[in-house]
Design a protein around this nucleic acid. Sequence first.
DNA 1: AGTATTTTTTAGCCATGACTAAATATATTT
DNA 2: AAATATATTTAGTCATGGCTAAAAAATACT
Lengths: 220, 220
Amino acid sequence: MELTPAEENYLKGIYGLEASGISPISTNELADLMQTKPASVTDMLKKLARKGMISYVRYQGVHITSAGKKKALEITRRRKLWEVFLVEKLRLHWDELAGLSDALEHISSPLLIQRMDEFLGYPKFDPFGDPIPNEYGEISSKPRVPVLELKIEQSAKIIAVSDNSSSFLKYLDKAGLFIGAKVLVLDKVDFDGSMELLVENKKRLFISKEVAANILTLPF
Amino acid sequence: MELTPAEENYLKGIYGLEASGISPISTNELADLMQTKPASVTDMLKKLARKGMISYVRYQGVHITSAGKKKALEITRRRKLWEVFLVEKLRLHWDELAGLSDALEHISSPLLIQRMDEFLGYPKFDPFGDPIPNEYGEISSKPRVPVLELKIEQSAKIIAVSDNSSSFLKYLDKAGLFIGAKVLVLDKVDFDGSMELLVENKKRLFISKEVAANILTLPF
DNA sequence: AGTATTTTTTAGCCATGACTAAATATATTT
DNA sequence: AAATATATTTAGTCATGGCTAAAAAATACT
């Protein structure tokens, strides 16, 4: 079943909310997420339900179906492969991706995606460290520990960020933090949860609790 | 002035007709080209005129403005750069490009296009041998002689095709003809205009007048 | 339980880009 | 020059994806 770009965007949103444990999803939550009005959401839910992507009962909220889940993973795969391309091949910057991947992820061509995957060397993670679903929608995942949960003296490698907002990404860049960077916890301040890190064995850096919670690592 | 994808497609069509000498362009011609109805064309012409892309007088047909020309060249540039990418990097085939470039050419991002140009090594021609406008809309062109106009014993290199239809491209592929191939005219049949060629110094090939007219060469 | 509040849906409208059918302008023919 | 034919435009309709305002359902409160 073919979806319009708008339908695909809603489906991504529904999948994301459901994956983060919110279930059933309310019309208002979805309206909030999609930056639109509840009345528009109701319209769209009817369309997605008619196409078998969600199960939707009036006033009872939304659940994604397995067909919907599969489609959402397909869209996510397209988006993330494009993101890898934009960063690795075109040398775009973290915070320059959003608008472009929003457009590119809706181009539906199995051939294109298969070739792109091959061209990129079958990447397993996007530039933010999130896993890329394979062509069957399977996700290979590693344990991810927020910097905030690391102990003093513990070392880890940054493997992902859990906030893709432009302001956060710009901050990380300026602070010298990136996917793959090694960090060592020098100090934790109990009072406010802030931390002092040693980045790449050379640079000392203070970060707030909020920042520490959004940087995900693989501990050594 | 931002154009919708539909407006961009019409503008490309208008530019193409005008470049091929048809001027002013009639509503019917455009409807024919765009595979739509004259009434829809009239609607669209009003929109494009309001946006300064064309000059349009009721019942008098269409002329493209310099702003429209510039925009059309920009869209063409985007398309052709994507086509180079799809063929050179993703190893797609001539006849697999159409649908994809139709979608990709509407993604408007100067940064993306600039980086893509750089990544591809500033290509001057698309996979069909047509020149790619530079960022100022300038086109570098070479003389192009249809195979049909070559004389017996004359050698030339295939540099372009003037018909991008899937059926023609598949035929060329099957016949072993491609951009860059060397051809030598062995014989010309006056009666029907058909020709016999020697391709790449090894393979003999008979082609019809229609085919010969649509293969463009740079004679040695 | 009965009222008040919040959430959700319905109803009706807007713009885009298509369409058909009817009206009008231009071209051609006699 | 008038009649006919062709081309083009207008008017009204449809689907998509938004919106607002009003109605209806679910939830919360006294």
